[in-house]
Design a protein around this nucleic acid. Sequence first.
DNA 1: GGAACCTATTTCCTATAGGATGTTGCTTTG
DNA 2: CAAAGCAACATCCTATAGGAAATAGGTTCC
Lengths: 239, 239
Amino acid sequence: MAQQAGREGRLRPARRLTLADDVYESIKTLVMDHILPPGERVNIDALARELDVSPTPVREALARLEADGLVRKRPLSGYTTTPLLSRAEFDDLFEVRQLLEGATAGRAATYASAEARQRISVEAAARIDVESGDGYRRHAAFTALDAKFHDLIAEVAGSPLLRDTITRLHSHLHLHRLYFPIAGAPATNSEHQRIAAAIVAGDATAATEAMRAHLSAARERHLPAFDQLPTPGTPRDSA
Amino acid sequence: MAQQAGREGRLRPARRLTLADDVYESIKTLVMDHILPPGERVNIDALARELDVSPTPVREALARLEADGLVRKRPLSGYTTTPLLSRAEFDDLFEVRQLLEGATAGRAATYASAEARQRISVEAAARIDVESGDGYRRHAAFTALDAKFHDLIAEVAGSPLLRDTITRLHSHLHLHRLYFPIAGAPATNSEHQRIAAAIVAGDATAATEAMRAHLSAARERHLPAFDQLPTPGTPRDSA
DNA sequence: GGAACCTATTTCCTATAGGATGTTGCTTTG
DNA sequence: CAAAGCAACATCCTATAGGAAATAGGTTCC
């Protein structure tokens, strides 16, 4: 008792299913937004106090996040947030993305329904006003739009397994989203439109090629961020 | 108190790190071996009693297993083991495997070290005596050998992400292993050797093609099982 | 002056108890 | 006889407490 009284609407969404699920989403956001910095130790009790719940659902949520690759668990030593990708891991990620998402785009061009093609066309036309909002919101909005476009293609490709797999990969990528140079947004948009055009036209080969080219270009756009980044894995004891 | 007294070595391995990890492995085995049948409800408390631990680590283990796709969670209703793959999901799985493992074999042929090629060659030569042991052990041994071969290729392909992704997919497949017709073992072995030969020779194109052909054949071998299977998703209330 | 050892604290890990919710079976009514 | 409503049960979900291990800091010895 003495806990479910006066904290409605603090972190709790309107439709509340289970507390553990809400906690999972909350912690995921904390990690994605770097409120819990990469490589940082995660104190279960402190997190439970912060979220105003007991440690049990926190522990359950962390177990799921570990399977997602967002935190690591060292036995009898606690959880830590996953460090930022190293350069090698980053390159690896984009190679795998090229393989998976290239094939996905090709499938989408072949199997997508007319209605699905319409949706892709609309989605590719959407843009984020680069001038609006502060830096953080702008980044978040742009990243969300990019993720939505890629997921949409995965959805209409007609392979649930492929879509799940791609979604999983994106978690790792999103840890880097705050470092993405916003200047690349226009190029990203036009590349998206080229992919959409190929899918709408039903040209699988062109769609695959356009997606691979897009990911190659996206990788190049991200690379400068590595020069201004703290070396991953370093146990930063900040000042 | 009154619990850590007399149950040494029951399910506890010699090196004990955390109870939750042991419970995770135990439940995973229970699901894989169909001791917890697919589609069955999983009672947390009953499972805790069975494993002689408290519900807390069981809950944590189930959360991880859910992320692995071996159990599903319905809010406020409990966990259920994942049903067997439907025909459509099965076909989907093998398409994705062809994509991923085909590319992996090609990478292995290109990047594998001399020592790695040696290991693959040895592994492909290993065989399970089809005559030995009872049906269950024979199946388990053969499936383990197959999984080891595929994972070895993924390991030497030099892409940790690709390897993780493939490992995840295999979980779903392994739920079907008990239905695999053992008669296909010799063909599987020879196909493995063909893949190994291409990798050892450094022929990426041939390795990719051999892997894809192998998976296509393996899929065909599995198909008859669908005719003698209870329809997936049926809530079986056994006699 | 440096390294190793010991101690104290923090943190994690597990067990237990109680409240809320979904489910099931029975009864009642049309 | 069937369907809807109700009640009892089982199960899940969350909170709290206590024991064990690891980490950090201080002290002592070389």
